[in-house]
Design a protein around this nucleic acid. Sequence first.
DNA 1: CTCGGGTGAGACAATCTTGTATCGTTCGAG
DNA 2: CTCGAACGATACAAGATTGTCTCACCCGAG
Lengths: 193, 193
Amino acid sequence: MVNEEELLDGAARVLAGDHSASMVQIAAGIGTSRATLSRRYATREALLKAVAVRAIEVVDGCLAPLDLAQNADADAFDTALEELVVALMPAAHLYGFTSRDATVLADPAFRAGVDRQDQRALAFLVLGQRLGRLRADLPPYWIWYSLWGLLDAAAEGVRDGHLAPRQIGHLVLTSFLSGTRPLARPPAGAPAP
Amino acid sequence: MVNEEELLDGAARVLAGDHSASMVQIAAGIGTSRATLSRRYATREALLKAVAVRAIEVVDGCLAPLDLAQNADADAFDTALEELVVALMPAAHLYGFTSRDATVLADPAFRAGVDRQDQRALAFLVLGQRLGRLRADLPPYWIWYSLWGLLDAAAEGVRDGHLAPRQIGHLVLTSFLSGTRPLARPPAGAPAP
DNA sequence: CTCGGGTGAGACAATCTTGTATCGTTCGAG
DNA sequence: CTCGAACGATACAAGATTGTCTCACCCGAG
């Protein structure tokens, strides 16, 4: 028997590679049979929603440590942010599929869950802005979305074989925080220091 | 009669919202009938590949101005980079779907086109690294992927209604270049300047 | 050993999607 | 006006997918 988490993760993995994979393809990708899949989840739609629920749960688990009251100083915020990014990394492929499927998107419960998570994350990011650790001139929503964009890009880079799984944690974090512009930039036209 | 570009853009828009949309749904989303759609593209697969070809073409159009020999100085590079990002913005939703669909991904011609574009972009980014305008400690592939991740995140933010279309150009550019960390950052624990 | 739960394989009808064809209509060029 | 190209609507068969069912098998608990 396959563990439920493994099953859902496997389904998410297959679906991430092909959003319209059939039940047969999903079952084959997991290494089980369509009969078992149908016994566990009455409907393909039910399976997709179960994957969505798991995505919500996993991200909730990442967001839980963000106890705002205790992160009132800049150093603690930095640590929490770094841990958040690293924790979110494996959730990227789960969300990458979930947040793009029409079946899932149409589910009010899923939308509510995402909204709740967004608010939670936004509060954390706004705290970072107040602490001076995140740029205050950027909309918190954009900060949150851009982080997911980088996570997604990293997952895609790994899937395409252009990036090594070991390096993407550092890459996402450094790009998210510092961007791709070199830190020391002499004024244009000035002689080299 | 619907212009072919409009038709493909409309199809891409519908497919971006639902990767497994049927021909009926795509036709309805564009505002035409399934009969017309079938007349223009013999197969659903043919339609998807046409969308992919258009995505390639549009991005090629964005990459064309990157005449490397003429961008040998830092200022010209900066200008070209900014123009590239802005030009790529409307292509994000085209690619967002295309690069994730199994039907399209299986097409060798599409993969070859993407590879060619990647090499072209990578050469431009490496030039930026040599000119000192992009961080040399980041893999060029990651710089390229992260830019697409930000473009995709911006498109999603607009689609979700959390970002205004007018602001995403600036947001993507500033996040891409400078990240979300405030520029002036005193060493941790040091007294404020 | 015996038994029962979980499994894989396969059959089956119902439904959806696709590709093709036909009809009448619209609209613009000549 | 006339005509032809393109259109929307509709019907149809072929194929794929889904949900349900049955059957035989494995394997661990008792």
